[in-house]
């Protein structure tokens, strides 16, 4: 464990909690892409299958349980509790365009052709594109509430911090996880455009971020 990975996990946790609290307190999921949240729940489900088979550390186990619980709770709020506020018309991204290539790629590129490893690889590739429906929805509505942009900021920051973690681990322990690094770089690049808007628009204190 190093400070970059810890900061990354905290940033990830903060993002998930920001979104969950926003939906719960406003009792609405307007402007939130349910599809992205479903994809994130799928990412955690396929990645944390080793939760009960491999014990790595208390931190590892606790964080996996927390991420699974919060992501399913978010999906529950969107599709069940506050489903009448779900904006399905604007959440129209065709997720099959993400799932098919990700499934295909995880069968082509993996460390071992075992169910656990192929599913882990699937979760890594899926996480890189899971935010697409949300970013698409924001471009479609042309705006995002500032709290949603804070969610996206911390979500994008988490994988950027993981990249720093991989650089650190490469230089200190020679560790290099090619699949996670390549996918993590792609994932972070998808946020760059948003990061620019976030810094130039939202940080100046505007309530909504309207895209050009």
């Amino acid at each position: 464990m190093n400070v970059f990975r810890l900061a990354g996990d905290v940033s990830h946790l903060v993002a998930i909690i920001i979104l969950l609290l926003k939906i719960w307190r406003s009792r609405s999921c307007a402007g939130i892409s349910g599809k992205s949240q479903l994809l994130f729940a799928l990412v955690f489900t396929t990645r944390y299958l080793d939760l009960f088979t491999v014990y790595i550390s208390a931190y590892n186990t606790i964080m996996k349980v927390v991420f699974l619980a919060l992501s399913y709770a978010t999906v529950y709020l969107i599709y069940m509790r506050f489903r009448n506020t779900y904006d399905s018309e604007n959440d129209s991204f065709r997720v099959e365009f993400l799932l098919v290539p990700v499934i295909g790629l995880s069968f082509l590129e993996h460390y071992a052709f075992t169910p656990m490893e192929v599913l882990w690889t699937f979760s890594i590739f899926l996480e890189a594109v899971a935010i697409m429906p949300q970013l698409f929805m924001i471009t479609k509505t042309g705006e995002a509430e500032s709290i949603t942009t804070h969610y996206l900021f911390f979500l994008g920051l988490y994988r950027a911090l993981y990249i720093a973690n991989w650089v650190w681990r490469y230089h200190t322990e020679g560790f290099f996880d090619q699949i996670a690094v390549v996918s993590g770089v792609v994932q972070t690049i998808f946020y760059c455009d948003f990061f620019y808007l976030y810094v130039t628009k939202v940080v100046q204190g505007r309530s909504k971020m309207s895209l050009p």
Binding site: D9, V54, S57, N60, Y111, Y162, N165, E173, D177, A180
Partner: peptide, 10 residues
């Protein structure tokens, strides 16, 4: 070992 090192990340 390699797998362990990989899967200790969230």
């Amino acid at each position: 070992k390699e797998r362990e090192a990989r899967h200790d990340e969230l």
